[in-house]
Design a protein around this nucleic acid. Sequence first.
RNA 1: UGCGGAGUAGCUCAGUGGCAGAGCAGCGGUCUCAUAAACCGCCGGUCGCGGGUUCGAUUCCCGCCUCCGCGACCA
Length: 722
Amino acid sequence: MKTFYVTTPIYYANSLPHMGHLYTTVVGDFLRRYKRQRGFETFFLTGTDEHGTNIERASAKAGRTPREHVDYIVGELQKMFGAFGLDTEHGGFDIFMRTTEPFHYEGAQEFWRRAAAGRTPKGRENIYKGFYEGWFCAPCATFKTEAEMLPAVEEGGPPLCPIHERPLDKVSEESYFFRLSDYDEALLEIYEARPDFVRPEARRNEVVSLVRGGLEDVSISRLKSSVSWAIPVPDDPQHTVYIWFDALINYITALGWGSEQRRAQAGEDLFEKFWPGVHLIGKDILRQHAVLWPAMLLAAGVELPRAVVAHGLWLDQTGRKGSKTLGNALELPTLLRHFKVDAVRYFLLREMSFGQDAKVDYEAIIERSNADLANGFGNLVSRTLTMIHKYFGGIVPVDDIPESKRLLAKRAGVGSDAQELSSSLELMRDQFIQSIEEFAFHRALEAAWGMIARVDKFISDAKPWELAKSEEQRETLGAVLYRAAEAVRWLAVLLYPVMPESSNAIRVQLGLAGEALVSDPAELKWGGLRPGEQVGEVAPLFPRIDKVKTMSEIEQKVFLDYAASLVDESKPAEGAHATQAAVPGAPTAAGTQPAQPPQQGATEAQAPPEGVAYISIDDFVKVELRVGQVLTAERVPKSDKLLRFTVDVGEAEPRQILAGIAEHYEPEAMVGRKLVIVANLKPRKLRGFESQGMVLAASVGEEGRPVLATFTEDVPNGARLK
RNA sequence: UGCGGAGUAGCUCAGUGGCAGAGCAGCGGUCUCAUAAACCGCCGGUCGCGGGUUCGAUUCCCGCCUCCGCGACCA
């Protein structure tokens, strides 16, 4: 039997379920259902990536052990998948893979050994010991990434730890390296020989140019003393496997590769049966899947995946990536509350031109759901079946028009056979299938909806309600309704992978409850609907959504959540650190005030929570605020945000001050302007220029747009603000 | 500035070396089987700008501009 194996990435067990998880998993679920229909035996993997520093830290912060933390996240993810019908119980994934599974430890270590024993294409060792260099904070006991450190105080000096504000140490740590650099040519040959290996094409080109630019060896281990929440390196207990190396291997250990335990558990050799698979990923993790992973497999002597398929990301209406902090991401519970799961699935597959980014907001989902599902497909099913009930007592009529009535039918504009309709169905079906095979799901659905419009038009042209008035046209009427209903049957079969539940409901409404729904669309033949059978009861498949009402409910909810989060965040988390001083800039005391319903605009919610930390006047006078006048202003080269000013603060020499406002203020317009300056701020170097002070500005709106503090009356330069 | 992506109808986006497309929204009409639905028609675009290749470019090439994401930088 033909087999098909599809994977989502295993999601990092650090964040709660979000749109990204839902999307990739829906695509995977859709693909596997489609392939199963086509007669493949399928295996669908999703799961979680559970090791590494970030999880250690996040769990410590939450006062849990790493194990408790990942179990919690996994629980939330599984709940979400269940709610969206993506779990095994609903015919979804076959395995929820976790990298903390003992069998994964076994398989990953075996993989390491195989890779270590093998040679690169250039004949060298795949894995060697070297030194990993990084900036280390001793009090934190961790390495800091670029994003996690403050710039050096002096040129050429070490960067600072943002938590301890002390210089970081350049530490080199013994580490194993994977000799990725030896794989460039081998990889390029693969991309060349297998144009479908990385898709879509734009992504393939990206990968090719990346690899052409040369590859560097990658560190694949950490000292156990710095990262202990990880898989031990085989035969070297001082080291643990670095997260990416560990995580990617899951795609084969899940199938029992390298683990007797897992093979026994599965009861069959899944690896033999299903590998190689198709990896669905977001374009943000393309490198790991299209470069590192294939090289790893080559190193360990394992067959490469069938394909790496990268999709785009969901953006908000202004084109920004959806994120929790910006509040522009769609909330999964909100989707569940207001939309049918099938409507969400349809939206996700239809709205995104697969491979590209797409914009999304709740309104877009409502509009699609109403236009395509309620007015389109749902209404077609409803009008067709209603007429069968109304004119034929719910009994499926006969398609054929007897010889004697054909002329009459023709006069009414109805053909003597269903040829025209059935061939356009076949054409659409072929386009549908072909588009899916090309990962152009949006195009497949576009084709299906073109067909829906066609059937709607077919009905409007034939005017069954007119035919019903004439006993002579009884057979013509029957033929029209049969044809419409048969077209609906085809659509239900084709759309099953997209909307399993609704497709099933249609099958029941058509009176085909006993028929297999999961039949191969390629095998669809005209005439599957049997005349004389009783059709089921008609019920709306996709209720029309009241846009105004629903939007206001959603907005209300968003506000309440936000208000609640303010209260929550100011509470001590999980009972830990209750007595510690709060981080500067964060709310300090616990707010006990319950969230109030919105009175005004959402910006009201920006007000600080209850329990402000007071400072004394002595604290305030430490800050030396002075009036300064801009003498010169220019953009700082190679910086989007920085303006460099010279400012007269009433001193002998003007000061040089940098401010991150270049996106909102033109330098030319700044000259001569009077500003409020923090005059006794410790000087700092930014982009090579020393900033001797700081410009005060209000921070407005979600993005914190700066609005400079100004005076409406004339003030002398250097005047102190008190 | 580095990397990646995008600029086509009011909105969301398809698309192709050969007379510019869909859906939604808007306007007008038809109809009543249907979920205030469907059907018909209209409105609407110098396909970011400038060059080049070509008989012909929105489509290929070069340059530029703008926007977005990542990086950096924002204390």
